[in-house]
Design a binder for these strands. Sequence first.
RNA 1: GCUCCCGUAGUUCAACUGGAUAGAGCACUGGCUUCCGAAGCCAGCAAUACAGGUUCGAGUCCUGUCGGGAGUACCA
Length: 574
Amino acid sequence: MNVLKNEILNLLKENSSLAGVNIGSVLERPPDRTKGDYALACFSLGKALKQPPNKIAEEIASRLKPSGLIASIRAEGGYVNFRADPVKLLPLVIKQIIADKEKYGTSSVGEGKTIIIDYSSPNIAKPMGIGHLRSTVIGNALYKIFSELGYKCIGINYLGDWGTQFGMLIADYKENKEKYSEFNSAFLSERYVAFNERAKTQPELLEKAREEFKKLESMDSENMEIWNRFRALSIKEFQHIYKLIGVGFDDYSGESAVTNIHEVIALIENKGLCEISEGALIVNLEGYKTLPCLLKKSDGATLYAARDIAAAIGRHDKYKFHKSIYVVGADQKLHFRQFFKVLELMGYDWAKDCVHVEFGLVRLSGEKMSTRQGKTIMLEEVLNEAINKSKQIIEERPKELSDKTASVNTEEIAKAVGIGAIIFNDLKNKRTRDVDFNWEHILSFDGESGPYLQYTHTRLASLLEKAKHAGYNTENSLPVKTELLAADEEISLAKLLNEFPETLEKSAENYEPSILSNYLLELSSVFNRFYRFHKVINDSDKDLSNARIALVRSLKYVMAKGLRLLGINPLEKM
RNA sequence: GCUCCCGUAGUUCAACUGGAUAGAGCACUGGCUUCCGAAGCCAGCAAUACAGGUUCGAGUCCUGUCGGGAGUACCA
């Protein structure tokens, strides 16, 4: 909890009698920072006390005495505005960060609690498309953020390695063995698309595919072997990408690993929840304003809802999770509503702890992407384009800068910057927004972008390096005269740094990495303005220099940590 | 048809969960390098789709209209 906010709340609590009503913890942030750092709105109190809000605000303001971190308390048009005393706040914040170093912002609120995060979960036998990136990077960021707050996280890559699509591929394979002498996932995807195309005019192909999948489900050894080859190949390709973007998982068990499915279906049936409709086994959810949940097809093969229910039960048995979150696109909303409902009807009270962290679709010129129709963009292509672009920028810039980075490997830098740009592009907006894929936007390295954050971080690094060479103690320059940091930008920076821990909590609470993204953008923006107007290293004023170096050192800890939590590797030079 | 999401400057997004004068990035216009990294900084332009309602107060909540998207039984 923010020390400043805490102090204001305590002050209010101690004096809660003066208002005669519960003030609660409704501290707001004034839109205009010059009015104050926090504000208490008195409008709702006005109603209860039958007095004009501005009167109440004045009353409260006149009775509260500024103390500690609070410099002033003023009433203004129905609000009580609280302003921090920078002379007291700054040393507190800076000291804390310099002492905690990379631990600043960690917390123990989640201690002893396990959170399951299901993310990425690509389908086998298809190359990873740009659409899968969102789930991957959002899940990865949430994993890191929750871990930071003390939760034990289990990252599950629930591979789409089971289902009728394999029936199609196996059917196709058996007919065209000679074409499969050598293949990759792009080829499998092509075959899959072509198969669907042919099935439009030859419906018997679909029949064949269903048969092959049924055989696979009953562990037919020939089909198992074919399936295994497809699967192994895909996993190898995925891991190449995961390594590239720095994402990992604790558990790779996919849909095929769900072995309790028949018992679970039997359990649902025993609870009297099932009925047969048009030959299929379903759970009727009419009473809950939800469409029925299909468990088994009329030919007896299982469907993915049944598999997800079984998997959820398996996960709960194994991990006794505090939350089980699914980072999956919004197009599957209905599916999650259905299967969460079935879990609830089965009597599991932990059904309420399952959450669908949905995100908007990535569309291609206004249309939904579809692997089946071959309308998709390969993730690898996007990553390569981004890397190339950042390489190009490095090569084209002025000599002073290329000298600066002469000692570092430009290949590595280009990779980190390019990939960071792609990752950040998917994390900067609220996740529920649909996005239209656009080369120009995804490759934008100016303004609110990953490279902007990286650039800011390298500036911080570069400053500290220069200071170190000039003989300053950059690692632990305390105590410093923080009262010398009196410029607007310096005070704003310290206040922002003070808000970092709660920013992490808010991101976690809302399952929303973009809250952290926006925070880092703001931090960068204020720092870059500070950098423009104030010189950090100035030997004619060593006290001021030391104070600013401590501020820069603090900023760098927070920037680096923020970037890492988003899954971006902070650079010292670029 | 039914259900759910979304409509904020030319464009891509914010707005602290109902609060004060709606903030940024691109793009455009004009500035800033004898000075710690110009992938930067400063300034200018410009917006809550429409019509009602709820209340002290609405971009945010409710109703309707228009526009866009997604889902909707044996794909995942």
